[in-house]
């Protein structure tokens, strides 16, 4: 097992009260596998991975639980041990490729920096490796573009640069936080295909965070659906799309406009909003928006229980 997250809980201390962003979630990921984390804005999907990498500011974030990476608990490592893992064994790409690159450094400098730090290569060797990486992610005339600044690249190209940077140290885990949300559909499919190819070539594991269940259908092996900081459903990819059990997952799937659908069919939207994370409801967090709710759902929070060996659901109602 590559990554094993147990009982991860993240709270933010704010002036208005304590925000319960992630409420005791557990998941695991094997080597070479792809895990999709799906949910709406504010459901804690990004916060959960930022917590694992200890990238949240200590002054306001309180993180508890365990995150075992190759059996080492990331939460008890010293800062220098952690630096060795971050960027080297675990790499991350972010949603907005426009703001994640330093505008006053050439992309070559930015990629080389990571290589020099982690692989102990000389400047010239790092440059050769960086150019190799740029070629691998499909940037034409990589040698020339090595000296270009980020503003000379389009959104899709910048995301490729980010991927090149992330993969330059051959990580065993790549965390992709909505990497295609800011991109056009055509560029999105380019990036998805690229990541798929690189995953197979390099044999790395991926955590892909998204709000769109369609994007990861062809990519993920396993999917966890998050809502208000809880995991509400977890299943392997085929089961989740064919036989979703949680009303929220069903809602998300029905809300997708389908290119193969009929015109005029009404999309089933999930009405209402997620609950206030400062005052979490006593019962099921999805209670208010759920059309199947029963009195029990209001009183008692459902726990994630096994539905089959590859399928877990947190719901009182058996759908």
């Amino acid at each position: 097992m590559l990554l094993d997250v147990k009982g991860l809980k993240t709270e933010f201390v704010t002036a208005d009260g304590i925000v319960n962003a992630v409420n005791g979630i557990s998941y695991s990921l094997d080597e070479g596998c792809t895990l999709g984390i799906v949910g709406e804005s504010g459901c804690g999907k990004s916060v959960s991975v930022l917590s694992i990498l200890r990238l949240l500011p200590k002054s306001i974030a309180r993180v508890s639980g365990e995150a075992l990476f190759n059996s080492r608990n990331l939460f008890t490592l010293s800062n220098s041990e952690l630096t060795e893992i971050r960027g080297n064994k675990i790499a991350m790409i972010f949603q907005d490729p426009m703001t994640c690159l330093n505008p006053v450094l050439t992309i070559g400098d930015q990629i080389s920096e990571a290589i020099e730090t982690h692989l102990n290569l000389s400047k010239t060797d790092a440059k050769i490796r960086a150019i190799e990486m740029l070629q691998m992610v499909g940037i034409p005339s990589a040698e020339k573009r090595f000296n270009d600044y980020p503003h000379k690249f389009s959104g899709g190209m910048r995301q490729r640069v980010m991927i090149a940077m992330a993969l330059s140290c051959k990580p065993s885990l790549l965390i992709a936080d909505e990497p295609t949300t800011a991109l056009d559909v055509t560029i999105q499919s380019q990036i998805v295909e690229l990541v798929k190819r690189l995953r197979d070539e390099l044999g790395m594991a991926i955590i892909w965070i998204t709000h769109d269940l369609a994007v990861i259908a062809g990519l993920a092996d396993k999917i966890v659906v998050m809502y208000a900081g809880f995991i509400v459903e977890e299943a392997d990819v085929d089961t989740l799309y064919e036989n979703p059990k949680h009303p929220y997952t069903i809602g998300l799937l029905n809300a997708l406009p389908r290119v193969d659908g009929k015109r005029g069919t009404r999309l089933t939207s999930i009405d209402g909003f997620p609950p206030d994370l400062i005052k979490l409801p006593l019962g099921c967090p999805f209670y208010k928006r759920c059309s199947y709710h029963q009195p029990q759902c209001f009183e008692e929070r459902p726990i994630l229980r096994e539905y089959s060996s590859t399928h877990k659901v947190a719901c009182w109602v058996n759908l």
């Binding site: 999105q188 499919s189 369609a214 259908a217 062809g218 799309y241 799937l253 290119v259």
Partner: peptide, 9 residues
């Protein structure tokens, strides 16, 4: 058309 992702693995 072919770049639209389908929600069907």
């Amino acid at each position: 058309l072919s770049s639209v992702p389908l929600a069907n693995p």
